[in-house]
Nucleic acid binder design. Structure first.
Lengths: 410, 410
DNA sequence: AGAATTAGTTTTCAACATGAACTATATGGT
DNA sequence: ACCATATAGTTCATGTTGAAAACTAATTCT
């Protein structure tokens, strides 16, 4: 007697036929997924944990081993009676390349199947207004170094992911509009295709905030949270919506743009053409102006703001409190609209944590009381690795969800 | 060479093993889904449309016929050469019961697999503050009449769906909080279980606005839209988010509560405990007060408002324009946040269409320019049938997505 | 009447997970 | 030492499933 759960957690009806082979694809993925949860384990335990039979697990694991996704790691002493199992684990030699282009830096790193960031390099560099070809050229170099290191360490890089601060069309590999670096309708599919020579899965483009939101979910403080709004304070304000332990990307793949929620219908015009957007109240520039901080590049101004806050400068404190207040307004609306009850703050908001979260909390309590528990606001600990790890992690997930793409036979 | 679509349209990794039999379940559903699109067709065309082989289609259709979900409808003259196909179609004798409890009426109807509303009855009745047992008792009577009519017409009612104006827990069959009828934490699972005697799928509870949003998608003006925000103006303001032709229900099943988006951070307190909520600006009571309409029940006041608007009463016009303006603020935020670009207005907002949509459009153009095309705001035509059809339709979808539940053997 | 064309069924086959039987390797008690 | 017991992993027969191809059926065109 069901009361209809299946109708609320909607799984849309299939539009393509199921083949017998789909079952194996699903179970290959299931094994990888379970290995991600269990770490090192044995075939017998995998069978018990997944509900598959021992026979099936053995067969599936054999395929995954020959695809280089799973490795055998000697005996697994269970310290109990019976024959000890042979240890199996995700193959740490399988990896994905993660890249990020941001306003004042670019970064590259290599993430293995188990989620360990193996190499990571950040290059400070101003990318705003630069020619995309030039920026991509330098990124190619940086990626090449990372790939070389990976190869030297015996890793196989199966895919790449690039995070950029703006709207992207992941499907076609284009950056639609990245205002903060001045890119508009840049097609990087061709560039991406040649980037990872061995990676038969190619290189995909992602939105920076969405990538960071996923990085928190998989590798950061969002682990185990399942549902939250990630708010990224870079030059603009980005966001990522995590629902049921997955990204809610929206129909076009660009949901989560919390920076252009209207927080005051009578508010000032925004660069997006609208008015009263959150970004005009809690964006980096808005806060600097309110705090009376002038001159220097972004990093210098942020340093000056932090110093002023440490010194108890009333103008700086008020500016940050105001940002937190409006951030809370936008978050309240989002919580109510999407039925979620937690937030993760990243980017500058993580840096400003001490001063911004009290105002944020108070504002949410005012506008959407009883939604947020005290410990449901978490601050990112991933820093500048977040977007890059999310982009690479998305590709790792692609491998975990579609391992059959890497099987030799067929 | 993929650029990673599969990573953006996230399909979370499986957590349960796939069996060979799952393939058939999926293909049974695929056939029903295609029949819903095609109407009457033939096995050969089904094979061409779905990608399955003719042999598989024949076998699947045979199962569905014996389950009473598909019927053969004589020859299908194609007016071309070759052997004519045997017509097959969704069995119009398979149906679901739809029910709605609202503030000042309750309704019942029976919807068949093809989406035709067979019986439909509305009873004007004030339910606010009444004892749930009493209301459910009267609804049982109404449902009984509908079921009797259905039986007399030879229909088989497989499941039921009830829409209520408030937060529900569909999984456990409870109404968590329905402020406008005064229900709080009412467990109706037991009542629901005994409602549809033959229906082995039971009766499920849904949120009224979400149900109405789905009704628009399947049977109303939302057909073919795929992505939109449905805004329901009843006593409160509800909403439903349709993404990729499915309901985005959120983690708890109650997403879409657009009525409590903050449209003015300095705004008045709301009954929800927050402040500046949309409902305080565009809710029924707020509009009546602004328009200077007093006395009478809701229906009478709405009639008075419409008369005043027709007469060109400036106060009434301003009140409705103001509601449209703030509705546009909340919609703008939603569009940006969720990356959607269309809206469907239902309930009172459909009634007030002529006066409210110009202000709505202007407001969206001001706060989120270039998001909305002129023809991307649509008005519901389903009226009081919307919620009921959505609730029944959700159960019809359950059958279409899980037809194996109704197969005799196994 | 016969060729052409389309619909639908039957037959054969390969992929796949299951379940049971079997082999392999450990521990613990006597 | 030896054997019962327990656990790990493999082998093999079986049932379900859709694909592919051959086949039968029904209609139109010439």
């Amino acid at each position: 007697m069901s009361t209809g759960v299946e109708a609320s957690r909607r799984a849309t009806a299939p539009t393509s036929p199921g083949r017998v082979g789909d079952v194996r694809r699903r179970n290959l993925s299931l094994i990888l997924h379970q290995l991600g949860l269990s770490g090192q384990t044995t075939r017998a335990r995998l069978a018990a944990d997944t509900g598959l039979t021992k026979a099936s697990v053995s067969s599936l694991v054999a395929d995954l081993v020959s695809a280089g996704l799973v490795m055998e790691v000697g005996l697994n002493r269970a310290a109990e009676r019976g024959r000890p199992g042979l240890g199996v684990a995700l193959n740490t030699a399988a990896a994905a390349l993660g890249l990020e282009i941001n306003v004042d830096y670019m970064a590259a790193g290599v993430l293995n199947l188990a989620g360990d960031l193996q190499f990571h390099q950040v290059v400070e560099q101003h990318n705003a207004g630069k020619d995309p070809e030039e920026v991509l050229g330098r990124l190619t170099e940086l990626a090449g170094q990372a790939l070389q290191q990976a190869e030297a360490a015996g890793l196989t890089v199966h895919a790449g992911g690039l995070a950029v601060p703006g709207l992207v069309d992941t499907a076609s590999g284009r950056v639609l509009n990245a205002p903060n670096i001045g890119w508009r309708n840049v097609d990087i599919a061709e560039w991406a295709a040649s980037l990872v020579p061995e990676g038969i899965l190619g290189t995909a483009v992602f939105n920076e905030a969405n990538s960071a939101a996923l990085a928190e979910l998989w590798y950061g403080h969002g682990r185990g949270m399942g549902n939250y709004l990630f708010i990224s304070g870079e030059v603009g304000i980005g966001g990522g919506i995590i629902i049921d332990s997955g990204l809610f990307a929206g129909p076009g793949g660009n949901a989560g743009e919390i920076g252009h929620i209207v927080v005051d219908p009578e508010g000032p015009e925004c660069s997006c053409g609208g008015s009263g957007c959150l970004e005009r109240y809690a964006g980096q520039d808005a806060v600097f102006v309110r705090a009376g901080i002038e001159g220097g590049n972004d990093a210098e101004r942020m340093a000056a703001l932090l110093e002023a806050l440490e010194d108890g400068d009333e103008q700086a404190l008020a500016a940050v409190r105001r940002a937190g207040h409006y951030l809370g307004v936008a978050a309240s609306s989002t919580f109510r609209l999407l039925d979620i009850d937690a937030a993760v703050l990243g980017g500058n908001f993580a840096t400003l944590e001490r001063w911004i979260t009290p105002a944020f909390h108070a504002s949410v309590e005012e506008h959407a009381p009883a939604v947020l528990a005290a410990d449901d606001v978490v601050v990112s600990g991933l820093g500048r690795q977040a977007a890059l790890m999310g982009a690479a992690g998305s590709r790792i997930r692609t491998v975990i969800e579609h391992p059959h793409l890497l099987l030799k036979q067929h």
